[in-house]
Design a protein around this nucleic acid. Sequence first.
DNA 1: CTGAAAGCGCTTACAG
DNA 2: CTGAAAGCGCTTACAG
Lengths: 343, 343
Amino acid sequence: MSPVPTLSDVAKLAGVSLATVDRVINRRPNVRAHTVERVRAAMAALDYRVDPLAAGLARRKRYKFVFLLPGGTNAFMADLAARLESLTGWLTANRASVETVFADVFDPKRLVEAIDGIDREADGAAIVALDHPDILAAIDRLSGDGVAVVTLVSDVPKSQRLRFIGIDNTAAGRSAGTLLGRFTAGRAGTVALLVGSLSLRDHVDRCLGFSQIVERNFPHLTVLPVIETRDERNRAERAAKDVLGEHPDLVGIYNVGAGNVGIASALRAGATAIRPVVVCHELTPGSVEALRAGQFDAILAQNPGHEVRSAARVLLACASKTGVVEEQERIRIDIFIRENLPA
Amino acid sequence: MSPVPTLSDVAKLAGVSLATVDRVINRRPNVRAHTVERVRAAMAALDYRVDPLAAGLARRKRYKFVFLLPGGTNAFMADLAARLESLTGWLTANRASVETVFADVFDPKRLVEAIDGIDREADGAAIVALDHPDILAAIDRLSGDGVAVVTLVSDVPKSQRLRFIGIDNTAAGRSAGTLLGRFTAGRAGTVALLVGSLSLRDHVDRCLGFSQIVERNFPHLTVLPVIETRDERNRAERAAKDVLGEHPDLVGIYNVGAGNVGIASALRAGATAIRPVVVCHELTPGSVEALRAGQFDAILAQNPGHEVRSAARVLLACASKTGVVEEQERIRIDIFIRENLPA
DNA sequence: CTGAAAGCGCTTACAG
DNA sequence: CTGAAAGCGCTTACAG
C-alpha cells in the first residue's frame, strides 16, 4: 500500500470493486446497506480521503457560474467586477467559467427580470441583491430550479440562498459611530448621515448601528435626519454642501453609501473653522485620496477581492461537493486610517 | 478539438508528440530551438494553458514543508500553530505534508541550530526568524541547499528568502500612534511604550513608526523610554504597574509585543482618575477580553490563519512551479475596536 | 533530440 | 445491486 491510501486500497480491503467504493463515497444509490458498511469500515480503517485532483480530473463536468452585479458608476462595484475579471484564470484552472451580468439594483422589477433571466443550466449564482419580497421570490425560484445561490455584499436573509458573503453591516455602522465619536474628541455638535438608499438593507443596517452607538456613547452629538443620495456623486456633493452651510456646528459626516468624491469636493469648497470628522465606506480612488489628503478620517471597508474569491470558492465547493474552510470565508470589517492603507 | 484546448491539441497542431510539448512547457532541456518555436506558436494559437489538476496528478511527487515557529507561551504564536494544524487537510489534498518545529526565537544560537537542522530533502520552509547575522547566514545556507524559504511574521530582509509573509510593521506602529494620539482627545501627558525585545525587527519597526507619528502629530504627548518585557506576561504586568505608579499624567500605553493579559491586570489593580488609552497587538483571548471590557481601546492585528495559508500557498506554488495570486497574499494591518471584533 | 506507452487516482457509462 | 474497462489531461521513464 502506498503511503497515502487510494481508492484501490479501500476496494481491496473491502473486497469490492472501485465502482462500488465510488458509489459509497459519493452517496450514489443502489448499494446494499451491508456493502456500504463494509466499504465505510475499510475507509475508516485506512483513514482514506479522496484525492480532489484525481476526482476533478475524472469528472468530465465543467462548472458554470453567473455573477449578477449592479450596473452604473459605483466605484466599489466596478472594483468588484474587476476582481472577478482577474479571477478567470483561477476559475479556468478549476474547470469553471463565469458569466457576469449587470443590472439596476435600485429597481426591483429589473432585478427580478435579471434573476429570472439567469441560465438554469448554471451551477451557481452570486447576486448583489436588494432585500425586497419580489427579489426574495426570484432568488427562491432560482434556487428551486437547482442553481445554488449566494448573496454578495448585500443580503436577503430569509431567502433560500446558500450563504451570505459580506460583512455584518450593523457592526460596521457601530464601528463608524465609535470612530467618529472618538475622533471628534469631545466637541459637541451635529453629525450628518448620508445613505445611498433606505431601501438597501446594508445601508439601513449601518444607519442603525451608527445611531445606536452615537446615542448611547456620545450624547453631546446630535445626528441629523438621514439624507438619501442614491449613491450618486452629485447628490452626495449637494447634500454635503447643504449640511455644511446650514449647520455651523457640524462636527462629523458619516457617508454610508457611495459618492465620496462629491463629499470631498464639498469639503474643499466650503471650508469651516474646524473640519468635520468624516467616516465613509470602501477603498476607492476617491476615498483613498481624501484620506491621504486628510479630508477624511477613516474608511470602513470590505475586501472586494476576498469577496469574489470567496463567492467563487463557495460555489465551486457546492458544485463539486467538496468542503469549505469556514474561517477563510469570513469577510471582515476592515478599518483604514491613513497609516494602514495598503501600499 | 474540445472547448478547452489540451496537450494533445497542441501536439497535433505543432506536429510533435506529447512528450515534446511537455518538455517545452516545463522548460526541460534537449529540444531543438526550432521545435520549441513550433510548439510555442501552437500554444499561443490555441491559447493553451496546462490543467493543474492533471499535472498535479501525473507528477508523482509529494511535497514536504517545514514550519519553524517560536516555542514558549506566546498566545499569538500558539494561534499560528493551531491554524497551521487545521490546514493539514488542505495540504494533504494538495499532495503536501508539513512538519512543525518549535525553537526559542530569542536565542540566536538555538535558532541557528534549528534552521541547520531542517531536513534538506524538504521542498520549502516557513520561518519565524530573528533579524541577526547568524540567522541570515543559516537561512542562506538552507536556501542554498535548495529549500525554498519564506519568512513569516518577522522578516530577515537581506536574506535569500523567497518572500516575507507578514505586515509592514513600521506602518503598524504609525497606525498605533495615530489611534492612540486621536483617542487621547487632546489630553496632554506621557505615553508608555512596551516591547518584547529590541532585538526583534518587527518590534523595533513598530516603535519607530509609533514615535515618528507621536512626535510629529501629537506634540502634547511625551513618549517614555522603551521598556523590554521579553514578551512575558509577568514582566509586562510589572512594567505597567510601575509606569502607572510613577506617572500620574500617563495618558496612554502602546504594547508592541505580547503580555497583554499582564497589562490588563495591572490596569485593574491600579485604577487611575482617567484610564489611559491602550493600544496593543494581536487578537488573543486576553486582548479581546480587555477590549470587550473597555480596558483596551484598539488592537492591531495580522491574521494568523491568512498567514499560514499564504505561506503554504506560496511554498506549494514554488515547489510545483505554478502561479501565485499576488493580491491574495498581501497581509493587511487589521485594526480592531470593540465594534468590529470578529464574531 | 524525439516519441510510444504506461500510469497518476479517480468517475463514467455499460454490461450483467 | 455490482464490476470490468475506458478515459480525464498530464508526466515519467524508457527506447531509439
